[in-house]
Amino acid sequence: MAEPDERLYFSLQRAAHRLRLAADRRCRAAAGVTTAQLGALFAVHDEPDITQQRLARILGLRESAVTALVTRLVAADLVTRRPHPREHRAVTLRLSDHGAATLRAAQPEIDRFNAELRALLGEPAFRQTATALHRLAHDETLTPTD
C-alpha cells in the first residue's frame, strides 16, 4: 500500500466523492433518493416545521440550492410545504407519509453501508474518523465569511 497522502483536504475530497457515488447508487436502489435528498429528509424528520433557511444552514447549502432541492422533494411527494405561522414570506416543511416511508426504506442500506465502513476501518478508527469529521463539519472557525 502506498504512503498516505498528507494533503488532507485533497484526500477528504476524493474520499467524499467516492463515498457519495457509492451511497447515491445504493440509496437510489433502496429508496429512490440521492444522499442529498436523504440528508434533507433526515433534517426535516428531525425538525418538523423547519424553514428552508434553517434547512440551508443545516445542510451547508445556499438558500437557492435548497429552494431547488425542496421543489424536487415536494414534486416527489416526499415533503409538504406550509405557510409559516408568523413569517408571511417563509414556509415550513414536514415529511409526507411517502417521505417517512422513504426514510424507513433507506435505513437498512445506510446501516449496511456504515457496517461496511466500520469493517474497513476497524471500530476504533471508525469512531475516531466520525468524531474528527463531526468536529470539522461543526467548527465555527472554519465557517466562510462570504
Rank of each mutant, 00 (worst) to 15 (best):
A2T: 12
P4H: 04
E6D: 07
R7P: 00
L8E: 09
Y9E: 07
Y9Q: 08
F10K: 15
F10P: 03
L12Y: 04
L12H: 04
L12M: 12
A15F: 09
A16P: 06
L19A: 13
L19F: 06
L19E: 09
A22F: 00
A22Y: 00
A23H: 02
D24T: 09
R25Q: 14
R26H: 06
C27A: 14
A29K: 09
A30L: 10
A30R: 04
A30V: 10
G32R: 11
V33M: 10
T35K: 09
A36P: 06
A36L: 14
G39W: 03
A40H: 04
L41S: 01
V44S: 01
V44A: 01
D46F: 00
E47D: 04
D49L: 07
I50C: 04
Q52V: 02
Q53A: 12
Q53K: 10
R54M: 03
R54K: 14
R57G: 06
R57V: 06
I58Q: 01
I58N: 00
G60I: 08
R62H: 14
E63G: 08
S64Q: 12
A65S: 15
V66T: 13
T67L: 05
T67N: 10
L69W: 08
V70F: 11
L73K: 02
L73V: 02
V74L: 02
A76G: 04
T80L: 08
T80Y: 05
R81A: 05
P83A: 15
P83S: 14
H84P: 04
P85F: 02
R86H: 11
E87L: 14
H88W: 07
H88M: 10
H88V: 15
R89Q: 09
R89I: 03
A90W: 01
T92N: 01
T92M: 01
L93W: 02
S96A: 12
S96D: 06
D97C: 03
G99M: 05
A100I: 01
A101R: 13
L103H: 04
A105T: 02
A105F: 02
A105D: 01
A106K: 03
Q107H: 11
Q107D: 09
E109R: 07
I110M: 12
F113T: 03
N114R: 11
E116V: 01
L120R: 15
L120Q: 12
L120C: 09
L121S: 09
L121T: 10
P124V: 08
A125C: 07
A125D: 15
F126A: 13
R127L: 15
R127N: 10
Q128N: 10
T129F: 13
A130H: 12
T131F: 12
L133V: 11
H134F: 15
R135A: 15
L136K: 00
A137L: 13
H138Q: 08
D139R: 15
L142H: 12
L142P: 01
T143S: 07
T145P: 00
D146N: 09
